[in-house]
């Protein structure tokens, strides 16, 4: 999945001359935490977060020092902005964000701002990638850590004519094992579960069916 599929295209921006006070109001009203600053060519020249602006605001105990709020945001904005490109992979962007401990990435095309993604968008994407937003059942299988396992289990699912919404493969805490997690478009996954067990795989979920006498 690439960023241009999940990015927000309708970006709320500001200009360097905007006052801190106005910027705070915009962020509060639009319920956003990051405000990219662009020049007249729509090029990204800076960014401010709600925290940057609050750092520049007077303490609530000093009510009379409001003159700072009238200063332009170019005085407080961060200018070495990390950006991403529309064809970057989602996982690459997530990596940049965690490595640099930032929670949003403006997206540029030829220097111009065309979109933005935030932590929230990435979490939504995670929900989507795991298929949990569509009617489906969870099936979790532990397999040996060797080639062909995903295909073999998927083959059994195919033989039951079931559609897979999503599939995740991840390392188990045991070195010699891997875990496959499927979201399958079916309410009754008992028959396929039984078939997978019969072929010797360990089904982690649905569990405890055998507990039911």
């Amino acid at each position: 999945m690439r960023l241009n599929e999940i990015m927000i295209k309708d970006v709320i921006t500001s200009t360097p001359g905007t006052t801190i006070k106005t910027a705070l109001t915009i962020m509060e009203e639009k319920r956003i935490r990051h405000l990219p600053i662009v020049n007249e060519l729509d090029e990204i020249i800076g960014i401010v977060s709600d925290r940057d602006l609050r750092d520049a605001s007077p303490s609530r105990f000093e009510k009379d020092c409001n003159q700072h709020l009238e200063k332009p945001i170019k005085n407080v904005m961060i200018t070495d902005v990390l950006t991403a490109f529309p064809n970057d992979f989602v996982e690459e962007a997530s990596n940049i964000m965690t490595e640099n401990q930032i929670s949003c990435l403006p997206i540029e095309d030829d220097g111009k701002l065309i979109g933005i993604i935030t932590e929230t968008d990435l979490l939504h994407t995670l929900v989507k990638l795991t298929g949990a937003d569509l009617p489906s059942s969870r099936l979790e299988v532990e397999v040996d850590n060797k080639s062909g396992m995903l295909a073999s289990v998927a083959q059994i699912i195919k033989e039951h004519h079931l559609n897979i919404h999503s599939a995740l493969v991840y390392p188990s805490f045991k070195d010699d094992k891997k875990v496959l997690v499927f979201r399958i478009q079916a309410m009754n996954i008992r028959p396929v579960t039984e078939a997978i067990k019969k072929q010797g795989y360990k089904v982690v979920w649905p569990t405890n069916l055998e507990m039911k006498v």
């Binding site: 298929g131 949990a132 937003d133 569509l134 009617p135 489906s136 059942s137 969870r138 979201r183 079916a186 309410m187 996954i189 979920w205 649905p206």
Partner: peptide, 9 residues
């Protein structure tokens, strides 16, 4: 919970 059971929502 949808984490465990159909339909997931």
């Amino acid at each position: 919970s949808g984490r465990f059971l159909f339909p997931g929502t």
